Simulated assay, not measured.
Amino acid sequence: MADESIDIAELIRQIRRGQPAAAEQLFRYYEPEIRAEIRYRLRSTAVRRVVDSQDICQSVMISFFLRVGAGQYEIAEPQELLQLLLKIARNKTNDAYRAQLADKRDVRRVRSLDAAKELEEKVGREKVATNAAEMADLLQELERQLSTQEFEIASLRRQGFQWDEIGQKMGESPEALRKRFHRAVERIGRTLTPWF
């Protein structure tokens, strides 16, 4: 899959600048491999009845786009990005399993579900954003919920500043700023998307 003709670093810069076409291109390019990984890991028939690989794939990409938009990742190679996306997919699939097999919701205890009931439950679940415009809205909401300092860090990261430079500008340890910022993105992201 790792097509070296794709300039991942440029696509990520475009995504940070809010260009939906770059997000769509990246999604189309990596979606088949992410879905294959998710389907491979969704072995339980009971879980597959209520969790769709497309839902998890969209959650993977939304999570990735939010983090890229917030300046979290530095990726230049297609293979490096693929490995990151597959890791996120594995984690989200594991989270979906844990959620569905929890005692209060254990899907293994469900005796039977007809197709109409499954469709009704899917429609009733929280919808995952499916296009780049909605992802941009999510990024905007993420930024709205950042503190003033966290927003400043996000702005500097989008402008291409490295953590060392941000630390110098803000008069703090780059590592402390990076960790605090990543925790904030994780915290807010979980409120915006399922399985963040």
Rank of each mutant, 00 (worst) to 15 (best):
R109K: 09
K117C: 05
V128R: 10
D114W: 03
T130V: 13
R111V: 07
L113Q: 02
S112L: 05
Q149T: 15
E134Y: 07
M135N: 10
R111C: 04
R125I: 01
R108S: 02
G124I: 01
Q149D: 11
A132W: 09
R144F: 15
L142M: 08
R109C: 07
S112K: 02
S112M: 04
V110P: 00
E141Q: 12
K122H: 13
Q140L: 11
E143C: 12
L138F: 13
E134H: 09
R144Q: 13
R105F: 10
R111A: 05
A102L: 02
K127S: 12
L146T: 09
S112A: 14
T130W: 15
E121I: 12
N131F: 15
D103Y: 08
E141G: 08
K122V: 12
D114L: 03
E141V: 04
L142E: 02
K122A: 12
L142Y: 02
L113D: 04
L138S: 04
A116R: 05
A133F: 15
A133H: 12
L113N: 07
R108V: 01
R125N: 07
T130L: 15
L142P: 04
A102Q: 01
A132Y: 09
E118F: 03
K127L: 13
D114C: 04
G124S: 05
E126K: 15
A129Y: 14
D103L: 06
K104N: 08
K127E: 14
L119E: 05
V128K: 06
A133S: 11
V123N: 00
G124F: 03
R125P: 00
L142K: 03
D103I: 01
